[in-house]
Amino acid sequence: MAEKKLFSFSEKGAKLRVVLISVVVLYIGVLVVAPLSALVRAVLLSDVGSLGKVLLQPDVFYAFGLTLALALAAVVLNTFFGLIVAWVMVRHHFPGKKFLNGLIDLPFAVSPVVVGYVLFLLFGRDGWFGSLDNWIGIPILFSWPSMLAATVFVSLPFVIREVMPVLQEIGTDQDQASYTLGANQWQTFWRVLLPSIRWGLLYGMTLTFARSLGEFGAVFVVSGAITQQTETATLFIYRSVEEREYLAGYSVALILAGLSFCILFLIEYLKKKEEKRLTHGH
C-alpha cells in the first residue's frame, strides 16, 4: 500500500516535471529564442555583397567608434568615482549617508528619456548650467559632453553596488595589519585592498560597459543624433529602421547583440570567479 502510494507520487512528479520543463522551454523559446533567430535570419538571408556594402559605410564605423569611446569613458569615470563612493559608503559615517545610499539606485529606476530630459533642463539655454558651454568653450548639448554625462548617469550604480558588499565583508582587519606593518595608504590600496575586491570590481566594470554600449533613450534626447557627429550605434540602428534601411539597421543590431553576448559570457565567468572566491574564503 505504502509502496503503491510512493510509486504514484513519483509518477505524478515525473509528469509534473515534463509539463513544467515544457512550459518554461516554450515560454523562453517564444520570448527570447524566436526573436533572436528572426534577427539572425534576417541578416543571413541577405547576400554577402550588399551586407558588406552596408557595413563598410563610414557612418557605421563612426557610430561604433563613438559608442566604444563613450562606453570606455563611462567605465573609467564610474570605476574611479565608484571606488571612492563605495569606500566612503562602507567605511565612513556622516549625516545624510542613508539618504545618499538610497539615491545611488536612482539610475536603475529612472526612464532613460527622463535622464536625457533632465540634462536638457540643466544645460539648456534657461537651465542652471545654461552658460557653462560659453565658459568652457565647447558645446554641451547635441555634443559629446552631454552624451557622456547621460552614459555615466545610467551606468553609475554598477561598480558601487558590486564593490560595496565585498568591502563590507572583508572588514578593516587587513588594512589595519598592513598599516601596522608600515605600508602607506597607497601601498595598502594596491597590495591589500585591490586584490580582494578584484572580481567584484571587474564584474561591476563589465556591467557598466554593457549598459553603456546599449544606452539609447538618454543619448537620443541629448545628442540630436547627427550622423557622423553624435550618432552612436544604437542611434544608427534607430535611424536605419526609421528610414527603412532595414539591412543596415538589422546587421548593426546583430553586431551589437553579438558584442553583448560576449560581455554576458565574460560576466558569467567573473560571477563564477567571485563565487569561488567567496566559498574559498569561508
Partner: peptide, 11 residues
Amino acid sequence: FAIPTLVTGVM
C-alpha cells in the same frame, strides 16, 4: 540583461 533594449524592439 545584456541585449540593448532598442535591439530587443527591432527583433
